[in-house]
C-alpha cells in the first residue's frame, strides 16, 4: 500500500510537521493534498523548515535525505511525503 493511502501514517506525519515546525494549528486541519512549502502554501514552510523536518524524518522513519532538492520534492504535500516514506 503506498503511503498516501495509509491514513494512520498521514495523520502521524501531520503531527510530526506541526510539532517539528512549532506551528500553532491543529494537525488534522492540514489537507492531504495541500502544498506545504512556500509563503502562499497551507503551512508556509521554507527551506530551513524542510531541513528541520528532514532531520525529524530520519529519526522517526529512518528516511535519509541528503540533498535539499530531494527534500523539497518529497515534502510537497502530505500525500507526497507519505509516498516517499512508504513507496
Amino acid at each position: 500500500m503506498p503511503g498516501s493511502q495509509n491514513h494512520q501514517l498521514k495523520s502521524d506525519l501531520k503531527k510530526l510537521l506541526v510539532e517539528t515546525c512549532r506551528k500553532k494549528i491543529p494537525p488534522e486541519t492540514i489537507p492531504d493534498d495541500a502544498t506545504l512549502i512556500g509563503s502562499d502554501s497551507f503551512l508556509g514552510l521554507d527551506s530551513l523548515d524542510v531541513l528541520e523536518v528532514s532531520v525529524a524524518l530520519k529519526k522517526r522513519y529512518g528516511v535519509r535525505v541528503t540533498d535539499s532538492k530531494d527534500a523539497l520534492r518529497i515534502m510537497k504535500t502530505i500525500d507526497a511525503l507519505a509516498d516517499a516514506i512508504e513507496p
Partner: peptide, 8 residues
C-alpha cells in the same frame, strides 16, 4: 551537514 550545504 544538517543544512545539507556540504558538497560530496
Amino acid at each position: 551537514y544538517s543544512l545539507m550545504l556540504l558538497s560530496p
